[in-house]
Computed example of a mutant assay.
Amino acid sequence: MSKPNKPVTSLLDSARTEAEAYQQGEDRPLGGYVAVMAVFASLIVGAAGLAAATGRRPPSRIEPYDAFLMAAGTHKLARTLSKDAITSPLRAPFTRYTETGGPAEVMEEVRGTSSIRHAIGELITCPFCLDMWIATGFVLGLLFAPRVTRMVATTFTVLTGADLLQLGYALAQRLQEGDRG
C-alpha cells in the first residue's frame, strides 16, 4: 500500500485543525456539510450539463408570476417536508420525535451518529435550509418541464393560501370566544 503524499496529508491535517478551532468542542458535522454541499453542487453541474447537451437555454427573465408561484410553493413544500407529521417517516432515519409543534407539525431533534447523518438531519428538519434545494428544483423545472413545474408550484401555493385561511379562521374563532367571556 502506498503512503499518502505529503501535500495531501498536510492539507488534511490543516483542515482538521481548522475544523477543531471552528467547532470549539461542539458537535458540528463539518465533513457532513461538505458532503451535502458536494451533492448539491454535483446536481447543479449535472443539470447544467444536461441543459447544454439538450440545447436548453435559461429564459432571458423569470416572470414575476413565476417568481411568486415558486416562492410560495417553495415555502409550503419546505414546511411540508421538514415539519409535517405525515412526512415524519421520511425524516425518521435522521431524526427523533421530541414534541408537537405548530398546527399539524412536529418538532424533532437530529440524530448525531455520523457526520453525514447529522448533516442530512439538519437539512431535512430546517425549512430554511430546504428552501435552497426546492427553489433550485423549481428553477431547473422551469427549464426542463415548465408546465409540470408550474402545476406543482401552484398546488403548494394554493396550500399556502389555504393554510393562511385556516389560521385566520382559527384566530377569528379565538377572538370571538374571547369577546363572549
Rank of each mutant, 00 (worst) to 15 (best):
L165N: 02
D131T: 13
V148R: 10
R91F: 03
T113C: 02
L167R: 15
T87M: 13
R61P: 00
F94P: 02
A72I: 01
R150G: 05
L123E: 08
A52I: 04
Q23C: 13
Y33F: 12
G102N: 15
E105N: 09
G102M: 12
I134D: 05
D84M: 14
L90Y: 04
T157K: 04
L123R: 07
E99Y: 03
P4N: 01
V8Y: 12
E99D: 14
Q173C: 11
R180H: 02
A67Y: 07
T160V: 06
M1A: 09
P127C: 10
A135L: 15
A71L: 13
T113K: 11
I86N: 05
V8C: 04
T17N: 10
T100H: 08
W133A: 10
V45C: 06
P58S: 05
R117S: 09
M70K: 02
S2I: 09
V39N: 08
R150P: 09
G32W: 02
V45A: 14
F138R: 03
S10A: 15
S115R: 12
T154K: 10
G101Y: 08
L123T: 04
A15D: 05
G102T: 02
A145N: 11
P7D: 05
V110N: 05
L143E: 03
E105A: 05
G25M: 13
T157L: 14
L165G: 00
R180P: 00
R57G: 02
G49N: 11
Y169I: 03
N5L: 14
G181K: 13
R79D: 09
G181F: 12
G25L: 10
A135S: 09
V158R: 07
H118V: 03
R180I: 08
R180G: 00
A71E: 06
A162H: 07
G178H: 08
M37D: 07
G178I: 01
E108D: 11
R117T: 12
F128D: 06
R91E: 03
L123G: 07
Q24S: 08
G73L: 11
V158H: 05
E18H: 13
L130K: 04
W133D: 00
A172G: 10
L171E: 11
A72N: 07
Q176N: 10
R111H: 03
G73P: 08
A48Q: 05
V139P: 02
L165D: 02
I134N: 04
P93Y: 01
R111S: 10
L123M: 13
G178W: 10
F144I: 03
V34H: 02
A153G: 06
Y65T: 03
F156I: 04
N5Y: 14
G32E: 01
S114A: 06
P93M: 02
R28H: 12
A41W: 12
G181H: 12
F40H: 06
V158C: 08
T54Q: 15
G178M: 06
A41M: 10
V148L: 15
P103I: 01
E26M: 14
G178Q: 12
E18N: 08
R28I: 14
D66Q: 11
P146I: 07
A41T: 09
E105K: 04
